[in-house]
Every structure is written in structure tokens, then in C-alpha cells.
Amino acid sequence: MKFFFLFVLIALAVLILVYLYRVVQGPTIYDRVLGLNGISTKAIILLVLIGTVYERVDMFVDISTGYALLNLVGALAIAKFLEQRGSV
């Protein structure tokens, strides 16, 4: 089972690379915001996964809750600001 979790973790890390490519390459700034958003979703999954492996899910779930909320605040702030600024 532990081997399977290691496999999932590495697969997720490779997927994060794809989103990272979008963050670096993305033609507009909204692509970068989307990429960061995708990375944070992966990070939430990764945290719960790591918690499962270490058998401390109760602790790690709390952090992932915090991540999800913070991600909302950050993304909303960026989106609001870009909207006011009004250019690409």
C-alpha cells in the first residue's frame, strides 16, 4: 500500500510540473492565475495523501483546510485587482 501511495505522490508531482509550465509559459496573466490555482488543488490532495501515509490525517487535514481558504482569498484578491486594472 505504501508503494502505491508513493506512486500516486510522484504522479501528482509530475502533474504539478504541467501546471508549472502553464505558470511560466502562460500567455496572459489569467493563465498564470489558473496554473497557480491548479497547483494549490494538487497541494491540498498531496497534503491529505501525506497525512494518510504518516497516519496523522487529523493534523494534515487542518492544514489543507487552511490552504483551501487561503487560496480563495489570494485568488479573489488577484482577480479583483486585475478586474479594476482592466488590461491584460
Partner: peptide, 19 residues
């Protein structure tokens, strides 16, 4: 609960900025 809000905010900002 949160991800639709983020997607909506991003898309709205993209639309309003003329994309």
C-alpha cells in the same frame, strides 16, 4: 464550495479586461 467562486472570479476578470 470555493472552487466555483474562484473560477467565476477569474473568468469575470478576464472578460472585463477585454479578453
Amino acid at each position: 464550495l470555493l472552487n466555483p467562486v474562484i473560477a467565476h472570479a477569474t473568468i469575470r476578470a478576464a472578460l472585463r479586461s477585454g479578453l
